[in-house]
Nucleic acid binder design. Structure first.
Lengths: 137, 137
DNA sequence: CAGCATCCTTCTCGATACTG
DNA sequence: CAGTATCGAGAAGGATGCTG
């Protein structure tokens, strides 16, 4: 049994070995697991955006990280990059079909977060109070 | 409008600023975004596990990383840690209610991955072929 | 405007050794 | 068994300067 089949059929998830080998969840987590990718996807969910517009829309992102992020998302086929040979240059980024379906997943994450972030925050506060200088964060 | 409300009500996601401020999605991604946490959660979804059992079940994890991972998950209230004062010591880890609900989210991730990992793999191969030494990965 | 190249700091993680 | 402590390599990420 693989995780993929297990999940699709609603069966319990298999072993970690199965998990590691068969399902591509790692690829997905490697991409959306980092801060900037999710923010870029959320912004592009609104529509087509140019490079500078993206940078303005995602507060705190450096030019370097935006470049890296959009390149990786493009590589994964999550977004498309269209260059208009104008002066000044104009590059537009847009979610692909895959990218749009990813927004559903992001929503699932946001749903779960909205439902549990208070509980988690409380748990963390309790833990930090009970274990002052544990170094864990 | 916040992402949280937007998602719950099915409306489109708001701005990145909203996203950053209001919803706890970052907390969640920070935790399940790393490799080991997900693997530990998947294993604990099967039932109660002792420290060594977890380490054996998660191939490749170091003792240090397992300790860090379970501590962080415990801090978040995702798993519970029960110490039995025996010799040799016996410590059992178990998913909390929050942890169990997290497995649904992991399944959603696995679902999406199962549906798209082939498309993503193909996109990556095409991109890598088209852009040999780009350095992007 | 839309990047690329470089430097440099910070953090992560694995390996190793030791303890109750 | 179930950890803690320490060290070092490497990756990630920010700042800066330059370019078509």
């Amino acid at each position: 049994m693989t995780v993929g089949r297990a999940v699709v059929t609603g069966e319990p998830v298999g072993s970690c070995a199965d998990y590691e080998e068969d399902c591509g969840i790692r690829e997905v987590l490697d991409r959306i697991g980092d801060k900037w990718s999710v923010l870029v996807i959320v912004e592009l969910a609104q529509g087509v955006r140019r490079f500078r517009a993206l940078q303005r829309a995602v507060p705190g992102i450096s030019q370097r990280m935006l470049t890296l992020t959009v390149r990786r998302l493009e590589r994964d086929g999550v977004i498309s990059r269209t260059v208009h040979a104008t002066i000044p240059p104009q590059v537009e980024y847009e979610l692909t079909a895959t990218g749009h379906s990813l927004t559903h997943l992001v929503k699932a994450l946001a749903d779960w977060s909205a439902e549990h972030h208070q509980v988690i925050a409380d748990a963390r506060r309790r833990w930090d109070t009970a274990n002052p200088d544990s170094g864990i964060r």
